[in-house]
């Protein structure tokens, strides 16, 4: 049955230099770039093409009620979580599983912190004040873009949580495979941070 074992799931391919999972993750991220690219283009088009009079005028900073302080804090949280994600992977490379797990837990908690801040300090007060996605085109874009990003954060948390919990047993069976998986998770996680790093100035500052 030697023919039935899939090659390059763990070891890199000699020519391409990557294992299949990593290539797959990069391709997936390419499609994610197209997805968020479409959202950003939509935002730019709608903003540039916004009418100069009437009810659909683009709101000013004062009208959007977005605090750059909260947004900035969340940006910082995500950047730190990216760093801890890299550290987790580095610890695995150095064969130090318990420290790696600790860094994964920190990443997970930071992601959770991001969501809690997002929900309690940004979404909730806006709903309290009667602001909905239907309020105006800016809030439509704001809620859809940040909501979709938040879903990506949740997705990341599910994966990281899996590797902290039940997925961790793979480390005993095949440490290299496990390290690879954490690397792929890290790639995704950096991408999610990167999206936020674009979202933050576009929505809060510009």
């Amino acid at each position: 049955m030697s023919a039935s074992v899939l090659p390059y799931t763990v070891k890199p391919h000699p020519v391409t230099g990557v294992y299949s999972g990593k290539l797959g993750t990069w391709l997936f991220l390419a499609s994610e770039v197209m997805l968020f690219g479409a959202f950003f283009s939509t935002y730019v088009l709608l903003r540039v093409g916004a009418p100069t009079e009437g009810a659909a005028v683009w709101p000013t900073h004062e009208q959007t009620h977005l605090s750059w302080k909260i947004g900035g804090f969340n940006t910082l949280v995500l950047i730190i979580s990216s760093v801890t994600m890299v550290l987790a992977w580095a610890q695995l490379k150095m064969n130090n599983f318990s420290k790696a797990r600790l860094y994964l837990i920190v990443t997970f908690v930071l992601a959770g912190l991001f969501l809690v801040v997002k929900l309690t300090m940004e979404y909730y007060p806006k709903f309290e004040a009667g602001i909905r996605p239907s309020t105006n085109i800016f809030f439509a874009a704001y809620f859809v873009l940040t909501g979709l990003h938040a879903l990506h954060i949740v997705g990341g948390m599910v994966v990281i949580g899996y590797f902290i919990g039940p997925g961790a047993s793979l480390w005993k069976k095949d440490p290299e495979y496990f390290t690879n998986r954490i690397e792929c998770t890290g790639l995704y996680w950096h991408f999610v941070d990167l999206v936020w790093i674009f979202l933050f100035p576009v929505l809060y500052l510009l």
Binding site: L27, A30, S31, E32, M34, L35, F36, G37, A38, F39, T42, L46, P51, G54, A55, A56, R132, P133, S134, I137, A140, A141, F143, V144, L148
Partner: peptide
């Protein structure tokens, strides 16, 4: 498929928002 489909997914999400959340990504004023 990899590169052309995501924009449609984005468009689908926006249209869904227009239909369900009452936003107006594709609706002009008046």
């Amino acid at each position: 498929l990899l590169l052309a489909f995501p924009p449609l997914e984005a468009a689908g999400v926006l249209q869904l928002a227009d239909r369900v959340l009452g936003t107006s990504f594709f609706l002009p004023e008046g």
